[in-house]
């Protein structure tokens, strides 16, 4: 064989290896950028919630008055975060330690937001529409994906519907507490509405029946929610 060809084989091998190395480095870099983005969103939500809590504490009863409602909306950011975490879970796998850590932070933020909304409702006498959704993506819940589509669709249609989704198997103490409070059995998917658990897939009509206050409020225009999932 021509020595020139041998040299070419070696050079091409080195170039191909270089391309592989670049691909791994770029992938790693982009992954870290995304982790940082998600962490930044979580930090932002945390700050918003803290800010709101302080506002409530400062304003006390005046918090419900007209004009005092400068509550930073965290639900949209939470939804954005949920979408991004779902992407990461898809690409890195459900057991990726960093994804699991971010999901735990996200779940805690959801619970904090839930408590805050509940407090606001109690203080101001408002009725809030809240759905707690427990799912699993370990392959033991055939209808969870379908349930997720329905809830995402409803969330898009109703700006004031608060959907808090929790990975049943995340192993987070706060989620375990929620499970204990509502006496949840492992029959997924589960939605908790007005403190009552409903097991198995619930279609949109059923959920709207369980949340009659939604029917009294106009659906938000699809165009207005097309930027979030």
């Amino acid at each position: 064989m021509d020595p020139k060809d041998q040299k070419r084989y070696v050079t091409v091998f080195l170039l191909t290896s270089g391309i592989f190395l670049v691909a791994f480095l770029v992938s790693d870099f982009l992954y870290n950028v995304r982790i940082a983005q998600v962490a930044e969103i979580e930090e932002g939500i945390n700050r918003n919630i803290l800010e709101t809590e302080i506002q409530y504490a400062l304003l006390a009863d005046a918090a419900c008055e007209e004009g005092a409602n400068s509550v930073p909306l965290s639900i949209e950011e939470l939804n954005t975060l949920a979408t991004k975490l779902a992407y990461m879970e898809n690409s890195r796998g459900i057991d990726d330690p960093e994804v699991v850590a971010l999901k735990k932070d996200y779940s805690l933020l959801e619970i904090k937001d839930y408590l805050l909304q509940r407090e606001r409702a109690r203080t101001c006498g408002e009725k809030i529409s809240t759905v707690m959704y427990f799912y699993s993506n370990k392959g033991d819940c055939e209808e969870c994906r379908k349930m997720g589509y329905v809830l995402t669709d409803m969330r898009d249609a109703h700006d004031d519907l608060h959907v808090y989704s929790f990975d049943y198997h995340l192993g987070l103490g706060a989620i375990e507490t929620l499970k204990a409070i509502y006496g949840l059995e492992e029959r997924l998917p589960i939605v908790v509405i007005n403190r009552k658990p409903y097991y198995g897939f619930q279609d949109r009509e059923e959920l709207e029946r369980l949340l009659p206050e939604l029917a009294r409020k106009p659906e938000s225009a699809r165009a207005a929610t097309s930027t979030r999932k």
């Binding site: 691909a23 791994f24 770029v26 992938s27 790693d28 982009l30 983005q37 979408t83 690409s91």
Partner: peptide
Amino acid sequence: DWFALNVEASRIL
């Protein structure tokens, strides 16, 4: 959403 773009090494390759 650019965030949804799969950037695993195998995909980049």
